[in-house]
Computed example of a mutant assay.
Amino acid sequence: MPDDSLQITPQPVRRQVEERLREAIITSRFMPGEHLSDRMLCDLFGVSRGVIREAVRLLEAEGLVIVVPNRGPFVAYLSAAEATQVYEVRGVLEALAGHGFAERASTEEVAELRAVFEEIAATRPGADRMALLTLKRRFYDVLLRGCRNSYVARMLDQLLNRNSQLRATTLSDPTRLPHTVEEIRRIVEAVERRDAEGAWQACRDHVAQAARVALRILNERAATGGPAPARRPAARRRAG
């Protein structure tokens, strides 16, 4: 019989499970603090325990999952205080990306950023949240590629993964989308003018407004008795 410990996991299968589990967390199918048992996930996705554990490990690195010793993996809980810190760092990194993009992106990349924005602008309130998050991810992919700063791109990309739950949270507010569109329009118009300072400020303003909405929702949830979070012991806790 084949030794399961030596089997090679097909990359596409692991990637599919990782993406579907990430989507389930971002869209709140799995709520903060919920236990992600191996058996439940194996049954849900129809894959082996090894595939599940690899996907969980990768999402733990993104901060979407925490693994509590002797208890297993749980959906990570992000408090309002932690969210504030995430947005503070994201605001600076995103502004640097916008500034660099305005200065160094190619004409083709500027046009590509405009094209993705037009898709976002065409989205109507009530549209599929995951589809909109995918569009925003494409927007950031172009922005990070065109800013020509690999350090900013790497750090912001990692932070955006941690920020996924918060972005989904802001989009749960039915009034948020029109404001998001106008904020991103300002970013695109600034880079089209090659106005680096304007792009910096537009990015800072976009993140500040997103933070305001997310923190309001998180505080409202806490006040009404949200899910009890599973937390890693302080000495072992991963930084967000």
Rank of each mutant, 00 (worst) to 15 (best):
E94Q: 15
E19S: 12
A210K: 08
D43R: 15
P69Q: 09
E103K: 12
D3L: 11
Q201T: 05
E118K: 09
L143N: 07
V213F: 04
G46H: 08
A208N: 12
R212D: 11
Q201E: 14
L36T: 01
A230Y: 01
A111T: 03
S37T: 08
A127F: 04
R176K: 03
D141S: 14
A105W: 09
H179C: 00
R104A: 11
S37Q: 01
A208G: 09
R237F: 00
M155K: 12
E18T: 06
E183P: 00
P227T: 14
H206T: 08
P125F: 13
R221S: 03
A211Q: 15
R232E: 11
Q165F: 07
F30K: 01
T169Y: 02
N149Q: 08
R221K: 12
G63M: 07
A202F: 04
T224A: 15
I52T: 04
A196W: 05
Q209K: 10
R176L: 10
T9K: 12
R39K: 13
F30I: 01
E34W: 03
L64S: 05
P233G: 11
D173M: 05
G198W: 06
A122I: 02
L21F: 07
A168N: 02
A230R: 07
D38W: 02
Q158F: 09
A61F: 02
M155S: 14
I52L: 08
V51P: 04
V191A: 09
G198F: 07
Q158V: 01
Q7L: 14
V68Y: 05
P69N: 06
D128V: 04
R185S: 12
R124P: 00
M155G: 00
P174A: 14
R138Y: 05
A211M: 10
D195H: 06
P125Y: 10
R186M: 10
A208W: 04
T84M: 08
A239M: 06
V92D: 13
R20W: 03
L58S: 13
Q7A: 15
G100E: 07
A115P: 00
E112Q: 15
D38Y: 10
G63Y: 11
E54M: 02
A81H: 11
A208R: 15
D195K: 06
L156P: 10
A153P: 08
S172H: 03
A228M: 09
D38I: 13
A199D: 05
I66E: 13
Q158C: 03
L218V: 02
T224M: 11
I217N: 12
P10D: 06
V67D: 03
V142P: 02
Y77R: 03
A228Y: 02
S79L: 05
F101C: 07
N161R: 14
V89D: 11
F117C: 01
A76K: 11
V191L: 06
Y87V: 00
G98K: 04
D128T: 02
Y140V: 00
A76D: 07
A95G: 15
